[in-house]
Design a protein around this nucleic acid. Structure first.
Length: 423
RNA sequence: GGAGGAAUGGCAGAGUGGUCGAAUGCGGCAGUCUUGAAAACUGUUGAGGGUCACACCUCCGGGGGUUCGAAUCCCUCUUCCUCCGCCA
């Protein structure tokens, strides 16, 4: 959620910047500023009424004390009128404030200046590429074939007990997945991230805090009986740990890592690109979350990008980094770098990590602030990134490491796996 | 599931109808002392709205009510704690 003050002072600049997202903000910004104006004018009237009535109350108290009950009763009659009008004003105020809030929720984050304009993923800007694409033998298979051939993942069995998109990992497949989780967590904690295991369900307030609600209501599984949502990413519970906090500057940087399953309804997905591990309803992910001083957040973002690079170098997977264009940028992000691994057997790039700076967009909803040097409270910056999303890393490993003898295990994972080939 | 107790500023913790946005301690900030630091001492320090700046308004878990007036009384919801029961 954008800050009202920013909108008041920089309406045109905001409007201009949102065009990169193909979001025409002109009319909604006008509405917001109008409602803001309205809210403030009602507030002023209400404040005056309340001030008057506070004053009278004090006088009445004094009069009673000095035994002048009759005069006190005269004043009481006056307060009754004020009460009536302030009640009405208070209702009007709530109405205006609510309308203002609802409109603010509709406006996406302002893209960082470096974000290129564009409509879709085709306009994303490749900024880095590294790693050799292996030359595979004739008849190399996509991962879903490999998973079947070596008995690593059973999609049909998962479909039987739950539905499509809920696979069962088996044997060495399950072990490799567990190895990856352990390796990622070790790598992250070594880099200074503090490990947490958050809840897998969140309440409504948390959903609003990080921006999944009301924007992506339909993307989350909702448990109606208890009004809880299954997390689409651990970004939600982890970032919300600091909802409402007023931090000190010395608390920065705050850095977490956590492993959780993630649940996404993925309504509307279909086709060959959702085959196998490419798109699931339940998948595992190790996440990074940072809370930073505004002056340090972009440096921190670069640090996260370097960290993820380091992991992919370890795994020796060919990858590239994209700077997302305005049209592909998430609702809450100011700047996002996507990491994609090249899947040789599928001959396509698979997104395996997304690293973003949300600046104050989430913090404003979360009321996540800190005291600056002058003793003023201001909003912190929040960031997050995947390190990494498991299924597509698994797909990338299976496909890129396949040989005629079987699937080799990347060197760094061998200690975690306890075997060095799947055959 | 049953019975009790509790929720106050960054933290701890007083406050049971009016001058309480709220004692005190810790923490933070500024200063004195010191070569420097620590300690000690002095001052200062809740958040949000509003204003050019003041004024002023709101906030003592959330919502509602009583009253001229509520942190304080009543209702309700939520959360936490203690005891009992059940349980991976």
């Amino acid at each position: 959620m954008l800050q009202l003050q920013v909108l008041r002072e920089n309406k045109d600049a905001v409007c201009q910047a949102l065009k990169k997202r193909n979001f025409d903000a002109e009319s909604i910004l006008d509405t917001v500023l109008e409602l803001d104006e309205k809210r403030r004018s009602i507030q002023a009237k209400l404040d005056n009424a309340l001030a008057e009535s506070n004053k009278l109350s004090k006088e009445i108290g004094m009069l009673y004390k000095s035994g002048k009950a009759e005069e006190a009763n005269l004043l009481k009659a006056k307060t009754a009128e004020l009460k009536e009008s302030s009640k009405q004003l208070s209702e009007d105020l709530n109405e205006a404030a609510e309308a203002l809030q609802q409109n603010l929720y509709q406006i996406p984050n302002v893209p960082h200046q470096s974000v290129p304009a564009g409509n879709s993923d085709e306009d994303n800007e490749e900024i880095f590429r590294e790693g050799d694409v292996p030359k595979l033998n004739e008849g190399a298979l996509p991962h879903w074939e490999l998973a079947k051939k070596y008995g690593l993942i059973d999609f049909e069995l998962g479909a039987k007990i739950t539905g499509a998109g809920f696979p069962i990992y088996k044997g060495k497949g399950a072990r490799l997945q567990r190895a990856l989780i352990s390796y990622f967590l070790d790598k992250n904690t070594d880099a200074g991230y503090f490990e947490v295991q958050p809840p897998l369900m969140i309440n409504e307030a948390s959903g609003y805090g990080t921006g999944q609600l009301p924007d992506k209501e339909g993307q989350m599984y909702h448990v109606q009986e208890d009004d809880l949502y299954l997390i689409p990413t651990s970004e939600v519970p982890i970032t919300n740990m600091h909802r409402g906090d007023l931090l000190a500057e010395k608390d920065f940087p705050i850095a977490y890592t956590g492993y959780t399953p993630c649940f996404r309804r993925e309504a509307g997905s279909y086709g060959a690109h959702v085959r196998g591990l490419n798109r699931l309803h339940q998948f595992d992910k190790v996440e990074l979350v940072r809370i930073e001083h505004p002056d340090a957040s972009y440096k921190a973002l670069d640090g996260m990008v370097e960290h993820v690079k380091d992991i992919l170098r370890d795994l020796k997977l060919p990858y590239r980094i994209l700077r997302l264009c305005g049209g592909d940028l998430g609702f809450t992000a100011a700047l996002t770098f996507d990491f994609e691994v090249f899947s040789t057997a599928q001959d396509r790039w698979l997104e395996i990590s997304s690293v973003s700076n949300f600046e104050t967009f989430q913090a404003n909803r979360l009321k996540l602030r800190f005291k600056d040097k002058n003793g003023k409270s201001q909003l912190a910056h929040t960031l997050n990134g995947s390190s990494l999303a498991l299924p597509r890393v698994l797909a990338g490993i299976l496909e890129n490491y396949q040989t005629e003898d079987g699937i080799k295990i990347p060197e760094v994972l061998k200690p975690y796996c306890g075997f060095d080939i799947i055959d």
